[in-house]
Design a binder for these strands. Structure first.
Lengths: 66, 66
DNA sequence: TCTATATGTAAAGTTTTCTTTACTTTTGAT
DNA sequence: ATCAAAAGTAAAGAAAACTTTACATATAGA
């Protein structure tokens, strides 16, 4: 799975720390998500999508390997 | 978080075992998801939404406590 | 009623998510 | 060039996801 987090953060002018605080995770978790180090939970995906005013599918993308 | 899985399965006439097989998890995982025993990963949510032809938001719902 | 299929649940174990702390590197403004 | 903020990364540990096995219950049809 990949994602658009970096772009969405840029659009909304948020740092990793800002986003982390808004959705209630650590900054390192956001960094790891952006770097595709791990797959976030559906609760996090829903929170992020809601914050950015988009659907989960517009931010997180399945890959062949998933 | 809650979800619509049971309804969507009914619409598509799938057993828990069927759904489990289609998205590549154990039947018990599907059962636990339906019973809100745990929060699935975003990959699973995307796969389930795709299978049912709906968005993640139409199947999984944030709650106050999330 | 008997039987098969579907669902619920539990316990133990593995894997992955996510946190905390802490340090390094990059980037941008002055 | 310097300084501060932002991003990258790593390691150890806690918490949660997910598996396997196994058994109990429910449901529906023959």
């Amino acid at each position: 799975m990949t994602n658009n987090l970096k772009v969405e953060r840029a659009i909304h002018n948020l740092t990793q720390a800002d986003l982390a605080e808004k959705i209630g995770v650590s900054r390192q978790s956001i960094n790891a998500m952006e770097k595709n180090k791990y797959v976030p939970s559906t609760v996090l995906a829903l929170k992020i999508a809601k914050l950015f005013g988009k659907s989960v599918e517009e931010i997180f993308f399945l890959e062949e390997t998933d």
